[in-house]
Amino acid sequence: MKPAPFAYHAPAQLPELLELLADDLSDVRVIAGGQSLVPMMNFRLAAPEVLVDLRRVPELRGLRWAPDGALTVGAAVTQAQLLRDRRACDAFPVLAEGIRHIGHPQIRSRGTVCGSLAHHDPHAELPALALALDARMTVASAQGVREVPADDFFVSYYEVALEPGELLTAVTFPAQPADAGWAFRELARRRGDFALVGAVAGMRAVGGAAAGTRLVLFGVGDRPRRIAAVEQLLDGAAPAERLGEVPALVVAAIDPVSDLHASAEYRREVAGELAVAALAEAWERARGRGEDQR
């Protein structure tokens, strides 16, 4: 399983990298960690003519904090690097929890956060986390830079809102309320596998009621899904009174498919349960954090 031939560039400057990507005569692809791309190349399911390695570009490395607490993760930052950053894990515990479900240390030590987002396997953890955390994608090309909200970024299976010549250079996670509680749940065949179904839930506890509820499911269709109906249902109420209604709303909002690992029917069945479990845990954590705040 040897890949087809290609030309290789590892530019040290971002403008040079973007110029290489702007070549519309050749089939050009970017490589970061390669954990998704190289297997496809070894199977010859992908055969780019030109491979541009982004890992030497200084601007793409590193985690940057904005004054308001937003975290910007450059395209070359590995999943392991993010996990090792104490401040990032404290500020975004659900991000850390979700990333720990990605494969194994040998994958995370090279796979990048942005690479997983740009690859967009709908069973993967990071796209769902980005959606749940309202992340913003920084997309650059030789023509300039634009920001894309996560919800607009994930289009369909392996398809994201990147035009030819464009590169995801960073993802920014806005600061989360300090009293928010989050939970991450995933059903997988084996430890470290892609999810059969997964859920990311978050909320604050205000009085005895949920506020700012977020619920994202993944593995339930061609992209991660925010379940707005559930978010509206729970906001302003005590979750215990409403959780029973969640599964039906979840099932109505998702469109899972059958594959080798699970049927659509199975995914529909368990998605609701998983959502309830994630929401319940997020609520418990929110109440705990709310008390910490007092």
Partner: peptide
Amino acid sequence: LTPARVRELIR
């Protein structure tokens, strides 16, 4: 006996 198959058996 995958999770999906077990659920199918129960169903």
